[in-house]
Amino acid sequence: MTPRDAADDSSDNHGTPAAGGRWSDLERPPLNPASLRRGLVREGGLWSEVDVVQRTGSTNADLVARAEAGEAAEGAVLVAEEQTAARGRLDRRWTAPARSGLFFSVLLRPAAVPVARWGWLPLLTGVAVATGLSRAAGVDTALKWPNDLLVTVGGEERKAGGILAERAGEGGVVIGVGINVSLRADELPVPQAGSLALADAVSTDRDPLLRAVLRALEEWYGRWRDAGGDPAACGLQEAYAAGCATLGRRVRAELPGDREVVGEAVALDGDGRLVLATEHGVQEPVGAGDIVHLRPARD
């Protein structure tokens, strides 16, 4: 048992779980850091270290700070059992009960890939997360452009996860992932949210789920990096399009500057932008903004 593992093992003097300790919710056991390291950190592999902390504000903020201070190598993984100041796109804040999900960040340094293609990293991560969860949880997932993970609960699309990428000094990118795993209906932050448990996952054991997601991310990142970041050559563009619930839908794009564009999402271009066919007969690529699914285009 490492010092970090020992610090996580909290109980009172009678051998019963302390309030808020690692076994305070037996339906949500803690992650096993030693097992995760054995399964993920290997010679020649991408993942260089795996750290698990009990509680932090934001794994992204922590890992960005470590990267900029020169204290983290490519492949560093930081996982939190609970986040108190997690951030999404547009600096939105959200929280979730301790050990109810997977909240982690990874540090990548794609030096061999032109910076112009780094915008594909959040989309790549989405494909990897969907791939890993499909394998380990048996859940059919879909991707809402650009960075949301959707599951089906009671025949309805629900958001169960999100991705946030941030630059970390020169040559570094930190990608944060949050996935609702065992969140119950009465714990949902909003009615439109979902979780793997509510989507009837065959497993909500977070250790194998995290390993599956990180192995899929290592595989896709390696293919993308080896192709010089070319999304078509490595199959990423095709894979994202195949799993994207936004394509073929009538959507509203809420863009910076309080501008809106309504149209059918018809394609994903080579830069990862969503291409909308508007009612004015033009195709407009959208690189940033909020996308609202209005209804399937066929309706």
Rank of each mutant, 00 (worst) to 15 (best):
D5P: 00
G15D: 09
P17N: 02
A18E: 11
G20A: 05
G21F: 00
W23V: 04
W23Y: 12
R28F: 01
G39C: 06
G39M: 06
L46K: 03
Q54A: 11
N60S: 12
A61T: 14
A80W: 02
Q83F: 01
A86Q: 07
R87K: 14
W94I: 09
L102I: 06
P114M: 06
V115D: 03
W118T: 03
P122A: 12
T125Y: 03
V127T: 09
V127P: 02
G132N: 13
D140H: 15
T141P: 11
A142S: 15
K144R: 15
L149N: 10
T152Q: 14
E157N: 12
R158I: 06
A160E: 07
L164N: 10
G178D: 05
I179V: 15
V181Y: 01
S182C: 07
A197I: 01
A199F: 06
D200I: 00
A201F: 04
A201D: 07
S203Y: 05
S203G: 10
D205E: 14
D207T: 10
P208G: 10
R211A: 15
V213G: 05
R215M: 12
W220A: 11
G229Q: 12
D230R: 14
V251P: 05
V251K: 04
R252G: 10
A253W: 02
V261G: 08
G263N: 04
G263C: 07
A265W: 02
D269I: 06
G270F: 08
V275W: 10
V275H: 08
G281H: 11
E284C: 03
G287A: 14
